[in-house]
Design a protein around this nucleic acid. Structure first.
Lengths: 128, 128
DNA sequence: CAGGATCCGCGCCGATACTG
DNA sequence: CAGTATCGGCGCGGATCCTG
C-alpha cells in the first residue's frame, strides 16, 4: 500500500506538475475530446482509442480523469443507476486549459511535416 | 550499445513525439529562455537551473538541445575556438513553437493557485 | 567549456484479474 | 458499465567519469 496516490515523482514545483497533467499522453486527448462536449467513460475510451490509433487502458483513462478532476479541470457526474452511468465534462477552468492545449497540439499537428523534413536533413548531415 | 539514440519509446505517432519534446521538463525551459535571445550552453544551464530551482544536468540539457535541434526548432552554432563556444538560438519554426509553449506555460503558471484550491477541495471531499 | 559514455534506481504504464 | 488492485518490464533521467 502506498501512502500517496499521486504525490511528487520528480516534479517538485506545482506548475510543472500541472503542465505534466495537461500535456500527458492521454490528458491532451481527454481535454480535446471533452472540449466538444461531455462524454461517458466508455465513449471517451472508444473515441480516444480511435483517434490515437492506440487503445487507452481503463487504468490510464481512469487515472488521467482522476488527476484532471482533482486539478479542477474536469467534472465527474455519477448517476446511481444500474448499470452505472458516469459523465465527464470540462469545468470553466478546464475549458480554458483545454483551449491552450488544443492550440499547442493543433500547431504541432500542422507542422509535423516540417519537423520530419528537418529531421531528415539533420540525419543526413550529422553522421557524415 | 543502443541501435537508436532517441527512437520511439512508447510514442508511436510523430505528433505525440514532437509534443513530448516541446513540453518536456527541460524543453519548456529551454524554449522559454531562447525566446529572449541566443544563449551559450553554460548560460542556458545556469539560467535554467536558476528559474526552475532545480539544476539541470549537462546530460539532460545536451539531450534536450539535440532533440530540439533535430526537430528543427533550435539552431546550433559552434565556433572552433579554445575553449569551445557554442551558441544556441531558435529557428523561425522554433520561435513559433516556443510562443505556443509559452502561452500554455504562462496560462498554467497564472492558474496554479486555482488548481491548488481545487485539489484541497477535492481531497477534503473525497476521503469522506 | 561543451559534451560523450556508462551505470542504475525509480516510477510510468500496460496486462491481467476481480468487483459493485 | 465503470471502475479497483496488483504485478512486472523498461525507459527516463540523475550521478559520475572521461575527452577534445
Amino acid at each position: 500500500m502506498k501512502v500517496s496516490t499521486q504525490a511528487a515523482p520528480r516534479v517538485s514545483c506545482p506548475e510543472r506538475a500541472v503542465l505534466e497533467h495537461l500535456t500527458s499522453r492521454w490528458g491532451v486527448l481527454v481535454l480535446s475530446a471533452l472540449l466538444e462536449g461531455g462524454r461517458r467513460f466508455g465513449e471517451l475510451r472508444r473515441e480516444i482509442s480511435e483517434v490515437s490509433e492506440i487503445a487507452v487502458s481503463e487504468k490510464m483513462l481512469t487515472q488521467t480523469l482522476r488527476t484532471l478532476e482533482r486539478d479542477g479541470f474536469v467534472g465527474r457526474h455519477a448517476r446511481p443507476v444500474i448499470p452505472p452511468h458516469v459523465d465527464y465534462d470540462l469545468t470553466p477552468l478546464g475549458e480554458q486549459a483545454a483551449r491552450q492545449v488544443r492550440a499547442l497540439a493543433g500547431w504541432t499537428e500542422e507542422h509535423v511535416p516540417q519537423v520530419l523534413a528537418a529531421r531528415e536533413e539533420y540525419d543526413a548531415r550529422t553522421p557524415g
